[in-house]
Computed example of a mutant assay.
Amino acid sequence: MTAQSGIDVLQPTSPARTGLSLRLPPAGLMLAWLAIAVAVLWATVPGLFTGHDPINGVPAEKLQAPSAAHLFGTDALGRDLLARVVHGSARSLSGGFVAVAVGLVVGTLLGLLAGSVGGLLDELVMRVVDVLLAVPGLLLALTAIILLGAGTTNVAIAVGIGSVAAFARLTRSEVVRVRRTDYVEAAFGSGGRFFTVLRRHVLPNSLGPVVALAAVQFGSAILAISTFSFLGYGAKPPDPEWGLLIAEGRNYLATSWWLTTLPGLVVVLVVVAAGRISRSISREDR
C-alpha cells in the first residue's frame, strides 16, 4: 500500500457520503419559535424585560416617542408602552390557550365520536357542525359573549366555541380515515374493546392535522381576542391587554403613531409565527 493510499484510508468520510448530514430548521421556522418563546417569557417573567409600572405612569412623560428610556414610547398617562405590552401578554396568551383548549377538547371529542360510531350520531353531529360552519366565527363568538358577559376569560371561551366546528370536522375526517386502516381492523378483530382501540390506535394516529389546526387557531384566537378587546368586550382599563392597548391609542394616530403601531406589530408577529409553526407541523405530519 502506498503512502497516498494510506492517507486516503485515514481521511474522514464526509457527511454527504454517509447520509448523516445534519439539517437545521429553516430560518423562518426558527424565528417563529423565537417569537413565540419571547411572548411566553413576557407572560411568565415580565420583570426580566421591563422594570416600569404598567399601571401607574408619570404625567410629565406622557406621549413621548420611542427612545432609549422608553423603547416603545409612553401613552397619554405617561405609562411605559413596552411595560404594558409585556404585562398584557399574559392576558392575551392565556386567552389564546383557553380558546384553543375549548375548541380542541370539545371539537375533538365530537369528531371522535362521530367518526368512530357513525350512523345516526355521525349525521346528527355533522349537521350541527355544518350549521356552525355556516355562521361566521366572529359572529358566533359575539353571540356567546352576549350570553356569557364581557371579560377576557369569557371572550376566550366564546372564541373557543366558535372554533369547535372546525376541530370536529377535521377530527371526524381523520378518524374515519384511520378507522379503515388494516391495523385498526386487526385490533378489533383480535378482540380489542371499542374505547381501548380508540384510545390506543385511532386517536393518536388522528391527532397530527388536529395539532396543526390548533397552532393556527392559537394565532387566530389571539387576533380574535384582541379584536373583541378593541371593541370593549375584553379587559377593562387600566389592565393592559394587546387589543385594549390598540384601542387606547386610536385617538392619537395623527400625533403618536407608536401607541397603535407597535402593539399591533406584536400581535401580527405572534399570529404569523403561529401560522408558520402550523405549516411546519402539517408538513411533518405528511
Rank of each mutant, 00 (worst) to 15 (best):
S94Q: 12
R286P: 02
V155P: 00
P46I: 03
G249K: 00
G192C: 06
P15W: 14
S190E: 06
A114W: 01
G191S: 10
G264A: 08
V128F: 15
V211S: 05
P15H: 12
G160Y: 08
V175W: 04
Q4M: 11
F230R: 03
L259G: 02
G243N: 04
S229D: 05
A235G: 04
I145C: 05
F49S: 01
A3G: 09
A65D: 13
F167L: 07
V178N: 01
F230M: 11
G189D: 09
L244G: 07
L41A: 15
A35G: 07
T74F: 01
R23H: 15
G160V: 10
A3P: 06
G78A: 09
Y233F: 15
A134H: 08
K62Q: 14
I146H: 12
V267S: 00
D182S: 13
Q4W: 12
A35D: 05
V86E: 04
S14P: 13
G275N: 14
A165S: 14
I281Y: 08
L112K: 02
V175Q: 01
F228V: 11
L138C: 04
V102Q: 01
Q64L: 15
L207F: 01
L120D: 04
N251M: 08
L63F: 11
V40F: 14
T171Y: 09
S229M: 05
Q11G: 04
